[in-house]
Amino acid sequence: MAVVRNATYVESIDLYIEANQEWMTDSDQPLVTSLYKAAEALDKRTTASLLGEFRQVMRELHKRKPGLPKEQVLDEFDELMKDFV
């Protein structure tokens, strides 16, 4: 997957969900919904507190990804998010 440089927050969540939907279950839906709501608000106005909430929810969802050691999952997430800070 190529990185989309000028993606909106909503578009970035679309890309993330598309790339990771094979391991997501119904129990992940509340986190996905929270991400979309935060992304919609961030696309309208970026604030530090909202960005922090977005990161927390994204981190929580990404930690559920199976098959990677916890340290590696967090490192992969931090690498993914460095362009959003």
Results as ranks from 00 to 15, higher is better:
64 R>T: 03
56 Q>F: 14
53 E>P: 04
45 R>G: 04
30 P>Q: 04
65 K>W: 08
24 M>Q: 15
66 P>L: 01
15 L>T: 03
33 T>I: 11
65 K>G: 11
31 L>I: 07
55 R>I: 05
36 Y>D: 02
62 H>D: 12
10 V>G: 07
59 R>G: 07
28 D>P: 15
21 Q>A: 14
3 V>G: 10
35 L>D: 05
23 W>A: 12
22 E>D: 15
22 E>A: 14
48 A>H: 03
16 Y>K: 08
38 A>I: 07
53 E>T: 07
19 A>P: 12
46 T>I: 00
42 L>N: 04
3 V>A: 11
32 V>A: 04
4 V>S: 06
21 Q>G: 06
64 R>I: 04
49 S>I: 13
8 T>M: 01
28 D>F: 02
39 A>L: 02
18 E>H: 10
45 R>N: 03
52 G>F: 06
53 E>I: 06
37 K>G: 01
40 E>F: 00
28 D>M: 01
26 D>S: 06
63 K>R: 15
25 T>K: 15
26 D>Q: 13
46 T>W: 00
24 M>L: 13
35 L>F: 07
29 Q>G: 05
18 E>K: 09
17 I>F: 14
13 I>Y: 00
65 K>M: 14
22 E>R: 13
26 D>W: 11
61 L>M: 09
43 D>R: 00
29 Q>E: 15
15 L>N: 09
44 K>G: 08
50 L>R: 15
38 A>L: 11
60 E>Y: 13
67 G>D: 09
63 K>G: 08
8 T>W: 02
29 Q>D: 13
9 Y>F: 00
30 P>E: 02
37 K>R: 08
50 L>F: 11
19 A>S: 13
31 L>T: 12
33 T>K: 10
11 E>D: 08
59 R>H: 07
67 G>E: 06
25 T>S: 15
16 Y>V: 08
60 E>P: 00
66 P>S: 04
37 K>N: 07
54 F>V: 03
57 V>K: 12
15 L>E: 07
14 D>V: 06
62 H>W: 13
48 A>R: 03
34 S>Q: 12
52 G>I: 05
31 L>Y: 10
19 A>E: 15
50 L>I: 11
3 V>P: 09
26 D>C: 02
25 T>P: 11
24 M>Y: 14
14 D>K: 05
26 D>E: 08
59 R>N: 06
36 Y>R: 00
26 D>P: 14
36 Y>E: 10
46 T>N: 02
55 R>L: 07
19 A>F: 11
60 E>Q: 10
40 E>P: 01
19 A>L: 13
32 V>L: 03
56 Q>A: 09
22 E>Q: 14
9 Y>E: 01
44 K>Y: 08
46 T>V: 02
28 D>L: 04
64 R>S: 08
38 A>M: 01
3 V>F: 15
40 E>Y: 00
43 D>F: 01
61 L>T: 06
64 R>M: 03
7 A>W: 06
18 E>Y: 04
17 I>Q: 12
37 K>W: 03
40 E>G: 03
15 L>Y: 10
33 T>G: 09
26 D>H: 13
66 P>V: 05
53 E>V: 09
35 L>Y: 05
38 A>Q: 05
20 N>P: 12
52 G>L: 12
25 T>E: 11
30 P>Y: 01
15 L>I: 06
11 E>V: 04
4 V>W: 04
6 N>K: 03
58 M>T: 09
29 Q>F: 14
14 D>Y: 05
7 A>R: 15
39 A>I: 01
51 L>R: 14
46 T>F: 00
24 M>S: 11
62 H>I: 10
